[in-house]
Amino acid sequence: MTNIQIAGDFFLEPAEALDDICAALEGLPADASVETIAKAINGKLDNDVAMIGFTPESVAIAVRRALGVAKTWRDYEWQVIDSEAVPPAMHLALDDILAQEVAAGRRAPTLRFWEWDRAAIIIGKFQSLKNEVDLEATREHGVEVIRRVTGGGAMFVEKGTAITYSLYAPTELVADMSFADSYAFLDNWVLKALNEIGIDAFYKPLNDITSSKGKIGGAAQKRYQRNTVLHHVTMAYDMDAAKMMQVLRIGREKLSDKGTASAAKRVDPVKSQTGMERRAVIDHMKKTFLDLNGGSEGAITAEEYAAAEKLVAEKFATQEWLTQIP
């Protein structure tokens, strides 16, 4: 890299430090990593330099984007959102809205953790409602049924029993991978986090996170405008297997013909393998993601919430969407 020029909407004191930042980049390889570039910048700046509105890391990301080599996790300024509990249909609408905001460039790539406020079954986009769900049992147990925009199988969750997260990532992050390979790649950080708390987690193609003691969770994806991939995962923390078998028809076939004990073995909750509180597991997952990929705490905007509420009314809460025949 030579003849570096940096411009942008930021503040810098003293202003002369901009020359030092440019000088730090002179002679670096064009494929230098974010870490290498940021380290070079930090090495040139005095301790009293104030960078306001940008960081050495953000300069590094901008440089790599300008050179067309931005395809690693660290090339993006991630936001991590620990979102509040909202109705199930609202979560699905938020997934759609936030993915489209990232695709349009109005939101940074984002990791969002969900909080469920009630029991729910979430069926895949291409599933038959009547084939998958015992509707009489859901009414008896007060379980809400919704349909998501991604494919895959039905999931049963209750308040405080699941760990669910969504990634809204640039498609270029997985541009050189097959669709199948992208699943495991986007969840590598999760496997590391689970390994660190004592779970021998590994990926089972196409979309299962599992361990030697049983399945932990499953993933699903949707691509938006070829710019963004929505990748979301639900993991069992403390599952009521007996209730799940009552409300999910497919659960009765897949899990067991011998009773609840066998079902509990098939989908082994995170709680039983770690003994950790659910919130502690989520906090560790957040820390692992930030340590590996960088980023900062973020939030859903009022405009995004409003757009999601509109989408709930127009799509995700309608019988037409729920009962569609694929």
Rank of each mutant, 00 (worst) to 15 (best):
A66L: 09
G43C: 01
G43S: 04
K315N: 04
A241E: 00
E13K: 10
M285I: 13
L28V: 10
K243G: 07
D208C: 11
M245H: 02
S182A: 14
I121M: 05
I146H: 13
T318F: 10
E172F: 11
R148Q: 06
M155L: 15
M244F: 02
K310G: 05
G218S: 08
A261H: 09
E77D: 15
A15Q: 13
A180D: 15
C22A: 15
G68K: 03
N293C: 15
L94F: 13
S182V: 12
V267D: 00
A38C: 02
K159A: 15
E115Y: 05
V102Q: 00
Q79V: 00
T138E: 11
I209S: 04
I300E: 00
V312L: 03
Y165D: 03
K192A: 09
T110Q: 02
Q127K: 04
D257Y: 08
I163E: 00
A302Q: 14
T228Q: 08
S33L: 07
W73T: 08
D19S: 14
A299S: 12
T72S: 14
A193Y: 02
A40H: 01
K71Y: 15
Y183P: 01
S178K: 13
C22N: 11
Q221L: 09
I123V: 13
F156L: 08
E16G: 10
M235Y: 07
K222P: 01
V69G: 06
A162G: 05
